[in-house]
Simulated assay, not measured.
Amino acid sequence: MRDLLGLDGAFMKGHCHGQILTVVSLDSSNGIYPLAYAIVESEYTTSWKWFLECLGDDLEMGYNSNFTFISDRQKGVIPAIAQLFPNAEYRYCLRHIHENMRKQWKAREYKEFIWRCATATTARSHFTGRAISDVLLNNMCEVLNGKLEKGRDKPIITCLEFIREYLMKRICNVVKDQRKCQGPLTPTATKLLKKNEQQAAEYIARWNGGGKYQVAGPWNDQHVVDIDQMTCTCRKWELTGIPCRHAIATWSRAMWPKSDCPTRIIPPPYHKMPGRPKKKRRQSMEERMSQKEKSSQIESVIASQSQTQGSKEVEMLSRKFGSVTCGKCKQKSHNKRTCKGQGVGQQEGGGANEGHGQE
Results as ranks from 00 to 15, higher is better:
residue 183 G to P: 13
residue 279 K to C: 08
residue 78 I to Y: 07
residue 4 L to C: 06
residue 137 L to G: 03
residue 277 P to M: 09
residue 115 W to R: 14
residue 216 A to K: 10
residue 118 A to L: 11
residue 273 M to D: 13
residue 167 L to A: 07
residue 177 D to S: 11
residue 57 D to L: 03
residue 61 M to R: 01
residue 336 K to R: 12
residue 107 A to N: 14
residue 113 F to G: 01
residue 288 R to H: 10
residue 113 F to M: 08
residue 163 I to G: 04
residue 170 R to K: 06
residue 1 M to H: 14
residue 215 V to A: 07
residue 240 T to S: 15
residue 182 Q to R: 10
residue 166 Y to N: 11
residue 48 W to G: 00
residue 56 G to E: 01
residue 157 I to M: 09
residue 294 K to D: 14
residue 87 N to Y: 11
residue 294 K to G: 11
residue 165 E to C: 07
residue 301 V to M: 13
residue 294 K to I: 09
residue 271 H to F: 13
residue 336 K to A: 02
residue 338 T to G: 01
residue 340 K to F: 01
residue 214 Q to H: 04
residue 45 T to G: 03
residue 81 I to E: 06
residue 250 T to S: 11
residue 61 M to G: 06
residue 179 R to Y: 04
residue 90 Y to G: 05
residue 244 C to K: 03
residue 30 N to V: 01
residue 256 W to K: 10
residue 212 K to C: 05
residue 47 S to Y: 08
residue 359 E to P: 03
residue 190 T to F: 01
residue 340 K to M: 04
residue 355 G to C: 05
residue 210 G to M: 06
residue 280 K to I: 02
residue 150 K to H: 08
residue 47 S to F: 05
residue 173 N to S: 13
residue 24 V to L: 05
residue 78 I to N: 04
residue 30 N to Q: 04
residue 132 I to N: 15
residue 180 K to E: 14
residue 57 D to T: 03
residue 189 A to D: 10
residue 351 G to F: 04
residue 43 E to M: 00
residue 73 R to T: 10
residue 154 K to W: 12
residue 341 G to N: 05
residue 173 N to G: 03
residue 318 S to M: 14
residue 85 F to I: 10
residue 253 R to K: 01
residue 28 S to G: 13
residue 4 L to I: 14
residue 181 C to N: 11
residue 228 D to I: 10
residue 274 P to W: 04
residue 106 K to I: 01
residue 261 C to W: 04
residue 356 H to Q: 09
residue 259 S to R: 05
residue 20 I to M: 15
residue 289 M to F: 13
residue 197 E to K: 09
residue 197 E to A: 13
residue 328 K to N: 07
residue 353 N to Y: 05
residue 225 V to M: 03
residue 9 G to K: 03
residue 228 D to G: 00
residue 290 S to C: 07
residue 196 N to V: 02
residue 193 L to A: 08
residue 201 A to V: 09
residue 178 Q to A: 10
residue 274 P to K: 09
residue 201 A to G: 09
residue 348 E to F: 06
residue 229 Q to R: 11
residue 353 N to T: 09
residue 225 V to C: 08
residue 351 G to W: 06
residue 94 L to H: 12
residue 343 G to W: 02
residue 96 H to A: 10
residue 118 A to N: 10
residue 14 G to F: 14
residue 278 K to F: 08
residue 91 R to E: 02
residue 332 K to I: 13
residue 306 S to M: 09
residue 272 K to M: 09
residue 2 R to T: 05
residue 260 D to S: 12
residue 138 N to S: 15
residue 57 D to K: 06
residue 39 I to V: 15
residue 48 W to P: 02
residue 342 Q to S: 12
residue 212 K to D: 03
residue 35 L to M: 15
residue 317 L to N: 03
residue 91 R to V: 00
residue 198 Q to R: 10
residue 321 F to D: 15
residue 109 E to Y: 04
residue 95 R to T: 07
residue 122 T to S: 11
residue 169 K to T: 02
residue 101 M to Y: 14
residue 210 G to K: 14
residue 214 Q to N: 10
residue 70 I to V: 15
residue 299 E to T: 02
residue 193 L to C: 01
residue 198 Q to A: 13
residue 343 G to P: 00
residue 108 R to W: 02
residue 147 K to G: 00
residue 17 H to G: 07
residue 281 R to D: 05
residue 265 I to S: 10
residue 246 H to I: 06
residue 254 A to E: 15
residue 337 R to F: 12
residue 265 I to V: 13
residue 291 Q to Y: 14
residue 88 A to N: 04
residue 100 N to K: 13
